[in-house]
């Protein structure tokens, strides 16, 4: 009797405790997403208002088949791969950023996890410090470094001067490279932290066991440590890949008009081109793509699959 009472009571209390987050999800995720989905099948009138109908025009235009808009000088219906190129560029950039953050973040996380306990917190603190300054301000700092008369070119010019070489300032800003650099810089902490967490959970005697059985540092890493830290790599990949696919600020600031990503496309449809229907369709496509890639990836490598360390 008593046990039953407690369990019903706690179940009821569980519901009330969950209610705020349920309302939050409903109000800020499900309803807006539903609206975006509805709008994405609509059409834009000449004043930029949404006409609610059911048309696949927006989606067709995204994959290249324009029925109502001219493709450059060709009148519709016509084929224009512009948006496909943008989607492709976003995916490639997302993958590049993820790969680079793994390549840079893993050694850093490993270094922190293997440092003496007293120093680990200092290193973690240093990883987090940049996040205290506003995102946009930090990206502007990169402009100062990368632009034609920027810090980097000045230093390179001075070095070239020392050895009497002719020096032509490099065009670094507003290139895909600059955007990639900004993305890696921006999202690196989100790769380091989950990898660190999973490395820290590895029983230190496993390093010793591997060495004892004849493995050097590299083979220990390949055969034991990296496989055991896969959950951290997977979590970091999701934390980096998903936001990189959607962000528009980095490409806006460091890519100028040269590097347009899906994020920029969506932002412009809502703010400049005033075509929310097309912007919504692009958002949905972005979401589906991101979800599909992440799902494939987590299926392939397992998501946070807890490997109990003996």
């Amino acid at each position: 009797m008593a046990a039953e009472f407690v369990s019903t009571g706690s179940r009821r209390r569980g519901f009330w405790l969950m209610l705020p987050s349920l309302l939050w999800m409903l109000g800020l995720l499900i309803i807006p997403l539903g609206l975006v989905l509805v709008v994405s099948f609509g059409r834009r009138d000449t004043d930029g208002n949404v006409i609610y109908t059911f048309t696949l025009d927006n989606y067709l235009r995204l994959i290249g088949f324009s029925r109502t808009y001219p493709c450059g000088s060709t009148p519709p219906p016509c084929f224009d791969p512009l948006y496909l190129t943008i989607l492709w560029r976003s995916i490639v950039l997302g993958l590049q950023t993820t790969l680079l953050t793994i390549l840079i973040g893993y050694p850093l996380a490993y270094f922190i996890a293997r440092a003496p306990a007293s120093r680990r917190n200092v290193y973690l603190f240093l990883v987090l410090v940049p996040l205290w300054t506003n995102f946009v301000i930090r990206l502007y700092a990169w402009i100062i470094i990368l632009r034609t008369q920027g810090v980097l070119n000045t230093v390179l010019g001075w070095l070239a001067g020392l050895v009497n070489l002719p020096f032509q300032p490099l065009e670094m800003l507003y290139t895909p490279g600059a955007v990639l650099l900004g993305m890696v810089y921006e999202f690196l902490p989100f790769m380091i932290l989950p990898i660190y967490t999973s490395l820290e959970k590895i029983n230190p005697s496993l390093y010793e066991a591997a060495a004892d059985l004849g493995a050097n540092t590299w083979r220990t890493l390949w055969r034991v440590i990296i496989p055991l830290s896969m959950p951290g790599i997977v979590a970091g990949t999701i934390l980096v890949f998903v936001p990189v696919m959607g962000t528009f600020i980095v490409s806006d600031i460091l890519g100028g008009r040269q590097v347009i990503l899906v994020g920029n496309l969506i932002q412009r449809q809502f703010l400049d081109a005033r075509d929310p229907a097309f912007g919504s369709a692009a958002s949905i496509i972005l979401m589906v793509l991101t979800l599909a890639i992440t799902l494939y990836y987590t299926r392939r490598f397992g998501f946070g699959e807890e490997i109990t360390s003996a």
């Binding site: 005697s205 496993l206 010793e208 066991a209 591997a210 004849g214 055969r223 034991v224 003996a310």
Partner: peptide, 26 residues
């Protein structure tokens, strides 16, 4: 070679792989 107090078996490997590890290193 050492037998560790907490065994320190590699949790992601099977028993066969655990035992084979040292020989693969050779």
């Amino acid at each position: 070679n050492t037998v560790f107090q907490n065994y320190a078996l590699f949790p992601h490997m099977t028993i066969g792989q655990n035992v084979a590890f040292g020989l693969e290193m050779e």
